[in-house]
Write a protein that binds this DNA or RNA. Structure first.
Length: 286
DNA sequence: GGTGCCGGGCG
DNA sequence: CGCCCGGCACC
C-alpha cells in the first residue's frame, strides 16, 4: 500500500538527537572521501536518503508537516523553510544523550570507531547548526527540516516523501532548486540517479525494511510457521532453498501429534475442526 | 503408504 | 463462512 512508506518513516525513532545527525553527516563524508569510483554518486544519493530518513525522525512535527499536511508536496518552492540564518527559528535543543545500546539497528553498526571520533569532532562545533557535508557544499542551516529539505532538493532532486519505495527517489522538476535559493553546488550530481546500491548500504536498508516488515506478520501462514519450525529445529532459515522460500514453502512435519494420531481415524468426531477439514491443526499446533 | 495441510471448490 | 476434498510434501 502507498502508506507503508510514511508509516515506516514515522515508526521507529523519535529519539534521534542532534548528535545523531552529526554522526550521520560525518559518515556521509566518510564514504564520499573513500569511494571515488563511478558508483560514488550512487553512494552519495543513498547516503543522503538515509540521512534524510533519519532526519525526518528528528522532530515529529516535521514529519507531519511534510507527509500529513502536504505543504511540502504541494508547493515545494514556497519558502516554507528558512534557507538562511535569518529565520530565528529556535535551533533544536541539543539534548545530547549518551548513545547507549538502544535498538538502533542498522545505523548503529555503521558507526565504528573512526567515524565516531569524527563525529565527536563534528559535534564539538555543532551548536544547533546543521551543516551540509555534501561534497563542495557546506551549506549551513539552523533547522533540521531546513537541512533536510536542502539535501533533498539540492542534492537529491526530489521532494516528495510519500513514495512507497524510498529507494527510488524521483526527479521532480517542480522541486528543482530555485535560482535564488542558493548557488547550486552539487547540481551535476543530482542529475544522475541510479537504482543499484552498494552492498553495505543496501544491507542496512533491506534489513530495516525486513525488520519493519516482520512486525507485519506475513500473510502467508506457511512462512511464519515454517520459520518457527526452523527455529525450533535450530536450522538456519537462510539455508532454505530459494525456490521455496516464499509462500510455496511447505513446512516439514512437526513433532506434535495431531488429532489424527491422538484420536485415530475411527474417532474423527473428536478431531478439531481444522483437522477434520484437512487444515492446519488448531488443537495441537507445532 | 500414512500423515499434515495448502489450495480451491461448493453451497 | 462452513464444509469438503484433491493433491502435494514430508515421513
Amino acid at each position: 500500500s502507498s502508506s507503508d512508506g510514511t508509516d515506516r518513516t514515522e515508526v521507529s525513532t523519535d529519539r534521534v538527537s542532534p548528535r545523531r545527525y552529526a554522526l550521520l553527516f560525518s559518515s556521509s563524508r566518510f564514504f564520499v572521501l573513500h569511494f571515488r569510483s563511478p558508483e560514488s554518486v550512487e553512494m552519495d544519493e543513498i547516503m543522503a536518503a538515509m540521512v534524510l530518513t533519519s532526519l525526518s525522525f528528528g522532530s515529529a512535527s516535521s514529519v507531519d508537516m511534510e507527509c500529513g499536511g502536504g505543504e511540502l508536496s504541494d508547493s515545494g518552492s514556497s519558502g516554507y523553510w528558512s534557507w538562511d540564518h535569518g529565520n530565528g527559528s529556535p535551533a533544536p535543543s541539543p539534548s545530547v544523550t549518551e548513545m547507549d545500546s538502544s535498538p538502533d539497528e542498522g545505523l548503529h553498526m555503521e558507526l565504528e570507531q573512526g567515524e565516531e571520533l569524527n563525529a565527536k569532532k563534528t559535534k564539538s562545533s555543532f551548536r544547533g547548526v546543521y551543516k551540509c557535508l555534501w561534497p563542495s557544499c557546506g551549506k549551513v542551516l539552523t533547522s533540521s527540516v531546513g537541512i533536510k529539505r536542502h539535501i533533498r532538493v539540492l542534492h537529491l532532486g526530489w521532494a516528495s516523501c510519500g513514495s512507497p519505495s524510498a529507494s527510488e527517489p524521483q526527479i521532480s522538476p517542480a522541486y528543482r532548486p530555485r535560482s535564488n535559493s542558493s548557488s547550486g553546488p552539487g547540481q551535476s550530481q543530482s542529475s544522475t540517479l541510479s537504482q543499484s546500491a552498494p552492498s553495505s548500504f543496501w544491507q542496512i536498508h533491506s534489513e530495516h525494511l525486513y525488520q519493519v516488515g516482520g512486525m507485519i506478520k506475513p500473510r502467508c501462514r506457511s512462512v511464519s510457521v515454517g520459520e518457527q519450525w526452523l527455529q525450533q529445529n535450530r536450522l538456519q532459515p537462510i539455508s532454505v532453498s530459494p525456490s521455496r522460500n516464499h509462500c510455496s514453502f511447505r513446512k516439514g512435519r512437526g513433532e506434535a501429534k495431531k488429532c489424527r494420531k491422538v484420536y485415530g481415524v475411527e474417532r474423527k468426531d473428536q478431531w478439531c475442526t481444522a483437522c477434520r477439514w484437512k487444515k492446519a491443526c488448531q488443537r495441537f499446533p507445532d
